[in-house]
Simulated scan of single mutants.
Amino acid sequence: MLTLLHTSPVHVPVFDALRDQDHPGLELRHVVLPELLERARRDGAAAVAPDVRRALRQAVADGARAVLVTCSTLGGVAESGAGGDDAGVPVLRVDRPMAAAAVALGPRVVVLATLGSTLGPTCALVEDEAVRAGRPVAVRTHVPDGAWSAFAAGDTARCARLVADVADGIGDADVIVLAQASMAPAEQLVTTSVPVLSSPRRGLAAGAGAALRR
């Protein structure tokens, strides 16, 4: 079983659909803890590390063979001391495979996020993958105006449109990274010739692989 740790219920049907398309038969368990993102935004991701650790240990107690963290703000916390080897099973962040793919496409990486709190963790992740690959990287960031407000209000279509409009205005980049899993619908709306990457499909593939290897 692969457990997915979310901070929004909107991700549940998205990952279920991807599972049905790409990994039929894979057992998923969804844990949704929106309060963790709210506190991380207010107090910093490190402040919720004990709660992330508890959530990971509970997932293992409930039978998880691997845990995939779909919140970009909490991904680094889960991978490091709050989770990682302490959990006893692989703990993966959904955006790491996307970051690796981005680095392979070129050094000029633009990170788009609907939340400013996501920019730091995602930029650090891209830079980490660049070091691993031995490639240079220069990361720029942008937060589309109004996108988070639209998402928080339940207007995911408007959120995706606002993100896509910003992406379409970026020309001097080798790749555009959509930092949060919730931004994935914008990938289908962009018209730019610059590659635009989202995390859910790549992240779920990595999580499935980790769960099935155990």
Rank of each mutant, 00 (worst) to 15 (best):
S193F: 05
V89M: 03
T156C: 06
R65I: 06
G134A: 10
D86R: 13
D62Y: 07
A184W: 03
M183N: 05
R19G: 00
L28V: 06
R158M: 13
L74N: 01
P50D: 10
V94H: 03
R54T: 13
A49Y: 07
A184L: 05
A130N: 07
G209A: 15
V194L: 11
H6E: 05
P144F: 05
L18I: 12
T3I: 00
T156V: 15
T141G: 07
R135Q: 13
P185G: 10
E35Q: 14
D86Y: 10
A205G: 12
A167L: 08
V109I: 12
A186Q: 07
L26E: 02
A78Y: 04
V110H: 11
E38H: 14
R42M: 11
S72H: 12
V175T: 07
I176C: 08
G171D: 13
T156E: 15
E127D: 13
V103R: 02
V52Q: 09
R93H: 02
E79C: 11
V52N: 03
P24Y: 07
V31C: 07
A113S: 10
D22I: 08
R140A: 14
L178W: 01
P144L: 09
A124E: 15
V12F: 02
V110E: 04
V89S: 04
A113R: 03
L56A: 03
L197T: 04
L115N: 01
R29F: 04
G154M: 11
D128H: 11
G75Q: 00
L2H: 03
G169Q: 10
R39H: 12
R158V: 14
T122D: 03
Q21I: 09
L2V: 06
T3N: 01
T70V: 08
R29P: 02
V10T: 13
G146V: 11
D165Q: 14
A186M: 10
R42E: 14
R96F: 00
L162M: 12
V89D: 02
L68S: 02
G106C: 09
F15C: 00
V48W: 11
T70G: 01
A59W: 07
R135C: 04
V190E: 10
V110G: 03
V32K: 04
L204A: 01
I176N: 02
V77W: 06
G76V: 04
R42K: 14
A208R: 06
P195G: 08
V69S: 01
L68D: 00
D95L: 06
